[in-house]
Design a binder for these strands. Sequence first.
DNA 1: CGTTAACATGAAGGACGGTTCCGCTTTGAT
DNA 2: ATCAAAGCGGAACCGTCCTTCATGTTAACG
Lengths: 191, 191
Amino acid sequence: MSTIAHRPQRADARRNREKLVAAAAAAFAESGLDAQVEDIARRAHVGVGTLYRHFPTKEALVVALAEQHFERIADTVEAALADPGDEWDVFAAAIWRVATAAAADVAWCEIIGGHPSAVQAASRGQQRLASAVGTHIARAQGAGVMRADATVEDIKTIMCGFGHVAAAQRAGAELDWTRYLAIALDGLRTR
Amino acid sequence: MSTIAHRPQRADARRNREKLVAAAAAAFAESGLDAQVEDIARRAHVGVGTLYRHFPTKEALVVALAEQHFERIADTVEAALADPGDEWDVFAAAIWRVATAAAADVAWCEIIGGHPSAVQAASRGQQRLASAVGTHIARAQGAGVMRADATVEDIKTIMCGFGHVAAAQRAGAELDWTRYLAIALDGLRTR
DNA sequence: CGTTAACATGAAGGACGGTTCCGCTTTGAT
DNA sequence: ATCAAAGCGGAACCGTCCTTCATGTTAACG
């Protein structure tokens, strides 16, 4: 077995990769996960071939973006764990923060809403997120402010619904994701 | 202006139309709204051309099915109005009945979840449904068992989320629409 | 500089799925 | 039985997108 001498990645290639990720984020945010590959390449001022050099498939690009999204959500939810306030308020505030960020981005909505492949990737961000949410739940239940039977899966389920409602609203339906969250969170709270 | 003598629709044509609707319902239930036209025609033992003779577009077929779905849902919700039981229980039972029927059918989920074109048709079924739901809400609020600020739009929103959760569950996601409904309905109830 | 491997390009390829079209068949009225 | 209109079939058409590939370009290293 010999050591293969890898030439370092070329500087322009790295730049292009970053431009592609940014362009994809923008295109997906605007048009949802079925934004066209050519549009993404155009926004990055790059040929489609270049896109395919960096990502073997459009799907791979989506997964990369999804992972990025989940990392950010996990950041938000983990950060909230340090907040010393009322357990319920802290949890609810974190959810609202995540939802507000997601609602402005069609792709987030679709990913949170459960895009088949992006979700199946049991990725680091998702695991961090699940763990942080679990801690929030345990705390809130300990303080008696969250229904005792609530689970991490319940939160996932609610956010899945949220993603779709927000996406539908963006698409013109007369819906209000704000009401959705208010009601769902109330349903999660102890009465 | 002369009276145009319309020859009555031929018997075989009527049969084919019915077979097409049934086949479409089956195909959509199984594969969702993006079931293929050719598959629908095949199930109806008919050529695609025949399908297009009866429905100018795949979309038209979807709208026809959607209208049928909404009529049925309206039937269920209207029927519940005659129930003399506790206002909340009656309302909740009607929602559960609708949800249970819908959860078994991918197309129902997608339509309830807010399929763009099928929803925009401010059709008879939808109007009946909205009106019946409005009556339920007014009654429950009058009895003090539903949050005072709940609206028909809130129910639509919740069912939109439901549709997506149920569809995702059918597609293999580890979600539980049962939990979703339980929590959302709790959030709608007076505490 | 010169060399070379990595990289970029975008037109062409290919798969997929809705829709059209025209020749053939069936119905129903005379 | 005959005929015209209505209906039927399904191969071909067409638009849309993702992906590939042959060709030209560029960064990095000696």
